[in-house]
């Protein structure tokens, strides 16, 4: 199960592989459809990636730590509900956004507490919480949707700073902060240590519980931020909100080269993974492949990339065996 390649090499290789795949996909779609390589379509792809990007950044940390959160889509949904309710009550959009982010943080604390202090494996605990959060959204909505919300938040998010859309800035900022935390602070080292082996990390004096708990809180907070953009874009909260996001995020993060065994995290890979998924979904629809095939493509991509890595790993093993 342990990857035989040196860590640094894999990360770089995977990121290059994804970058190449993105470029190849863009080139092929641009040839196949005259409408693919347009500014409008690029904006469409990017706009449809915002929530998934933010949630995937949090998921990268969780997976690198040896955790996972299958309830994260419904966490975004609950945060979006909070924002939506406040907007209908004509609360100032920046306050509503702040409340939504805080709601995400609070739910991250709940999830973290159940996993860390209940000492339940993350996948099982978040599976249970998924049911609880779903019920909570239903009860909060009471059957009615929040639809056609006031556009106040949407207008606020249309602000550009030096010509750059605020979504891009927020994502870059989140990326930057997480990158710094991972590379330049003990937090990153400790997180990866916990991901490698919780037991060893604890023996080395890492406060494993604090690391795990705070990673869930960060992930929840990012889901809260995603909720702000969700409401800004869709102005709608329905009962099934966010139900596909968690699995999509896991797929994108793994595609990006972060190891689910923990101990390895590639933020750049995650971003490329999300973009590749969205480019393929968009491009295939543009060349006329029915949307029902999108799930198949996602799965095939995941299996394909990991198989390539698995095969090359086996080859290298053989070579190593031969030279010894």
């Amino acid at each position: 199960m342990i990857n035989v390649l040196p860590r640094g090499a894999v990360v770089e290789k995977r990121e290059l592989l994804l970058l190449a795949a993105c470029v190849l996909a863009i080139a092929l779609f641009a040839i196949a459809s005259p409408f693919f390589a347009t500014a409008d379509n690029a904006v469409t792809i990017l706009r449809n990636s915002v929530e998934l990007l933010l949630i995937s950044l949090g998921m990268s940390l969780l997976l690198a730590m040896g955790g996972v959160d299958v309830s994260i889509g419904t966490v975004m949904g609950l945060a979006a509900f909070v924002i939506g309710r406040l907007l209908t009550a004509a609360v100032d959009p920046s306050l509503a956004a702040l409340a939504g982010i805080l709601a995400g943080t609070a739910l991250g604390m709940v999830t973290g507490a159940v996993v860390v202090f209940g000492r339940i494996p993350a996948i099982v605990a978040t599976l249970g919480l998924l049911g609880v959060y779903k019920a909570a959204i239903y009860l909060a909505l009471g059957g009615a949707w929040l639809s056609g919300l006031p556009p106040t938040l949407t207008e606020m998010l249309q602000v550009r700073i030096v010509g750059v859309p605020i979504a891009v800035i927020v994502i870059a900022l989140s990326y930057g902060v997480i990158w710094l935390a991972m590379r330049r602070t003990p937090f990153g080292l400790h997180l990866l240590a916990v991901g490698n082996s919780e037991e060893k990390a604890r023996l080395q004096g890492v406060n494993t519980k604090l690391i795990q708990f705070s990673t869930f809180v960060i992930s929840g907070t990012l889901a809260g931020v995603a909720a702000v953009f969700y409401i800004g874009t869709y102005r709608n909260v329905e009962m099934t909100i966010g139900s596909t996001l968690a699995l999509d995020a896991i797929a994108a993060v793994v595609l990006g080269g972060t190891s689910i065994l923990g101990g390895k995290c590639s933020l750049l890979g995650t971003v490329l993974g999300v973009l590749l998924l969205r480019i393929l979904q968009n491009g295939l629809l543009l060349v006329g492949v029915p949307s029902l095939w999108q799930a198949v493509v996602t799965g095939a991509l995941l299996i394909g990339v990991l198989s390539i890595e698995g095969l090359s790993g086996r080859l290298q093993l053989k070579f190593a065996g031969a030279t010894q």
Partner: peptide
């Protein structure tokens, strides 16, 4: 499917196509 987000994604892709 049943989420508004997917409906928006599919619609925007259709408009681009």
């Amino acid at each position: 499917g049943s989420t508004a987000q997917r409906a928006a994604q599919v619609s925007s892709d259709l408009m681009a196509a």
